[in-house]
C-alpha cells in the first residue's frame, strides 16, 4: 500500500508561472464548451418544452424522442461518457488527447444538462403569459422570443451559472486525457508528484472561481427580476 505524503514542492514564488497558464486553459475549455452548450442546448430545451403538452406546439412523439436522448446524455457519469465516446471524438477532432479532445465529451455532457435547465426555466413562465401572446396574434417564434425568453431570462441565467460550474468540474476530469487546466495541474503535479504548494494553489483558485461565478450569477439573476 502506497501512501502519498504531501510535501511543499514548488516554492510559492514559482506558483503563478504554473497555475496561471492552467487557469487560462480551464477558462478556454469552459468558454468554448459553454458557447457550444448554449447554442445547441438552448434551442434543444426550447424544443423539449414546446413539444410537451404545455408547450406551443405539442408533439408527443418528437418530445418523447428528444427527451429520451437528453436523459441518456445525463444518465452516464462524465468519466464513463468520456471513455465511451473516444472513437467518436477521434472521428470529429482527429485526436483523443488534449484540449480539442476534451471539448467533445464536455459538450455532449453539457448540452443535455443545459437543455433541461433551459426547459425548466421556460416552464416557470406562467402559462397565461403564453395566452397573452396567442390572443394578441403573435406567431410561435414571436412568443418564444418576446415572452418565453424574456420572462424566462432570470431562470436561464441561473441555469447558465449552474452549467458553467458543472463544466469546470468536467474540465478537471477531462484533465485525465491531457486537456490541461487547473484540475489537471492539481492531479498531475499536486497529487502524483506530491507537490503541496501546487495542490493548495489549485484548490484555492478553483474554490475562488466557483464562488465568483456563483456570486456573479446570483447578482445577475436578481438584477433581471423586477
Amino acid at each position: 500500500m502506497t501512501t502519498h505524503v504531501l510535501a511543499l514542492g514548488t516554492p510559492w514564488s514559482g506558483v503563478p508561472a504554473l497555475v496561471l497558464p492552467a487557469f487560462g486553459q480551464t477558462a478556454e475549455m469552459v468558454g468554448i464548451v459553454m458557447a457550444i452548450v448554449v447554442l445547441v442546448g438552448g434551442p434543444l430545451g426550447l424544443l423539449i418544452f414546446n413539444t410537451s403538452p404545455r408547450g406551443l406546439a405539442p408533439q408527443p412523439r418528437v418530445n418523447a424522442v428528444v427527451s429520451w436522448f437528453a436523459n441518456l446524455g445525463r444518465s452516464l457519469p462524465f468519466l464513463v461518457l468520456m471513455a465511451a465516446i473516444i472513437p467518436f471524438t477521434q472521428l470529429v477532432v482527429g485526436t483523443t488527447i488534449g484540449l480539442k479532445a476534451a471539448i467533445i465529451p464536455m459538450s455532449l455532457a453539457g448540452i443535455p444538462f443545459f437543455a433541461r435547465l433551459m426547459e425548466n426555466a421556460i416552464r416557470e413562465v406562467p402559462r397565461e403569459l403564453l395566452d397573452v401572446g396567442v390572443a394578441s396574434g403573435a406567431s410561435r417564434w414571436q412568443i418564444i422570443r418576446s415572452i418565453q425568453l424574456t420572462e424566462g431570462l432570470p431562470g436561464i441565467a441561473a441555469g447558465l451559472t449552474l452549467n458553467m460550474i458543472a463544466m469546470i468540474e468536467y474540465s478537471a476530469i477531462a484533465g485525465a486525457i491531457g486537456a490541461g487546466g487547473l484540475g489537471y495541474l492539481a492531479v498531475n503535479d499536486g497529487y502524483e508528484q506530491f507537490d503541496g504548494t501546487i495542490m493548495i494553489s489549485c484548490i484555492a483558485l478553483l474554490i475562488l472561481v466557483v464562488q465568483v461565478i456563483q456570486f456573479t450569477g446570483d447578482r445577475v439573476v436578481r438584477s433581471l427580476l423586477h
Binding site: 406562467p126 397565461e128 403569459l129 395566452d131 397573452v132 396567442v134 390572443a135 394578441s136 396574434g137 403573435a138 406567431s139 415572452i147 424574456t150 420572462e151 431570462l153 432570470p154 433581471l224 427580476l225 423586477h226
Partner: peptide, 21 residues
C-alpha cells in the same frame, strides 16, 4: 386566425402582465 385575433382584444384575470417588461 392570427390576423383575426387582432380584432379581438383580451383582458385577462389579474392582468397577466410580463413581469420583466
Amino acid at each position: 386566425l392570427r390576423v383575426a385575433r387582432r380584432a379581438i382584444g383580451t383582458v385577462f384575470q389579474s392582468a397577466n402582465l410580463l413581469r420583466r417588461l
